[in-house]
Design a protein around this nucleic acid. Structure first.
Lengths: 220, 220
DNA sequence: TACTTTTCACCTAGGTGCGAAGAT
DNA sequence: ATCTTCGCACCTAGGTGAAAAGTA
């Protein structure tokens, strides 16, 4: 999935199809912290070659960034509360600014290994299917349309002239801003993932891609 | 202080000069719930008589309303967290709807005695200086001006033609949306309280007045 | 040129007082 | 008539993609 980290505030931009997780197996009466971090897939940067419609290696990633963790704002809460409904990380913000440590996120770490959350009784789970690509401009018109059609804040760009292909009916059949269980990816939309859109782990220009993962901090 | 519970959504209206409290003496490592409720001053309703500029008794209050408690959204938090900064109840909403129990507030109880929060180790503190009057229309132009000048959301009504008396300079000298320590009342604005504006405990038309008080719930 | 940062029109979401419309 | 409720213009606060402006 491509994530736009371009344009305006390169400072702080939400990750649009937000990470949404359902948890089970917690102690209902125990208090938990739940956090999320992002790990780079590799240390390369990519460039989109238009005529071949592919991502080509275009150098190495920026200098490694100290790992950061986004603690879910509902933390701490009881296991009962966490398990009651889907946990959404929709307020997490991406940035490439190394100085920003206001609980925001943006991984450009070298090591592809989880190493961030230190402490007692910490359990980390990684979701490879949530890997995404940070871009400065969407290189796929289908992705642009998805972003505009499904993000409420992009409604201003929804001129009906943009939706013209047959895929629009399928997109519309999905609930608005209600992604599927674990997380909303393009796999949710039939036809897109299978066409092989160029959104797998890779980089464009200056930003890195990574694998968001959730970490459940078990505290006393 | 008069609180507008009129016009649009009689449903849910914020209490504008919000209740703001600073707490000390808590156990820093203990978890606390902090809540607030409102208690009626009496069971009468009042009418503003224009020529005499006074509130006159105009009947009895509406049927008693089951007492409701507004739990501060930061609850639960450690004593250290609570004591670190001023606790603001600016998201508390007033309503006269008896069915609304979505954590909203509006007291029209008969008993002037605190009785709401039951539980272990509950401490309740009442602030008589925060008594206010719910009205359907502001009966005092100075109050209207204060509401418009100091509430960011009422900026659309700030035509400079309204501010003309000498009091405006004093109002402007105060920080915007930063009331004094315990709570923002008209006592914060020199000249208003001393002129005896008709905003002491009393009622206009259909709504009740009350004394907001904070209750610290000490839990394990 | 090539890349980064700022700006902007256009939205969502919600809080104001006021005036019109409804209800009794 | 009086009282209640609804609608509305006008704000705050913040999230979009696109395009302009800045930077080397």
């Amino acid at each position: 999935t491509q994530v736009d980290l371009q344009g305006a505030d390169l400072w702080k931009r939400r990750m649009f199809p937000a990470m949404r997780v359902k948890i089970s197996g917690l102690d209902p009466h125990q208090q938990y912290y739940i956090a999320m971090d992002i790990i780079p897939v590799d240390n390369k940067r990519y460039r989109y070659v238009y005529h071949s419609s592919k991502w080509m290696v275009a150098g190495n990633a920026d200098s490694p960034v100290p790992p950061r963790v986004y603690i879910h704002p509902d933390s701490p809460a009881s296991g009962e509360t966490w398990m009651r409904q889907v946990i959404s990380f929709d307020k997490l913000k991406l940035t490439n600014n190394e100085l920003d440590d206001q609980g925001h996120e943006y991984g450009e770490d070298l090591s592809p290994v989880k190493a961030v959350p230190v402490g007692e009784g910490v359990k980390a789970v990684s979701f490879p299917e949530t890997s995404f690509t940070t871009v400065t401009a969407y290189q796929n018109q289908q992705i642009t349309r998805l972003k505009i059609d499904r993000n409420p804040f992009a409604k201003g760009f929804r001129d009906s002239g943009r939706n013209r292909m047959g895929l629009e009916a399928l997109v519309e059949s999905y609930a608005f801003w209600r992604p599927s269980l674990r997380t909303l990816t393009f796999e949710d939309i039939p036809g897109i993932a299978k066409q092989g859109c160029p959104g797998s782990p890779s980089i464009l220009q200056s930003t890195a891609s990574g694998v968001p993962s959730t970490h459940a901090h078990l505290l006393s």
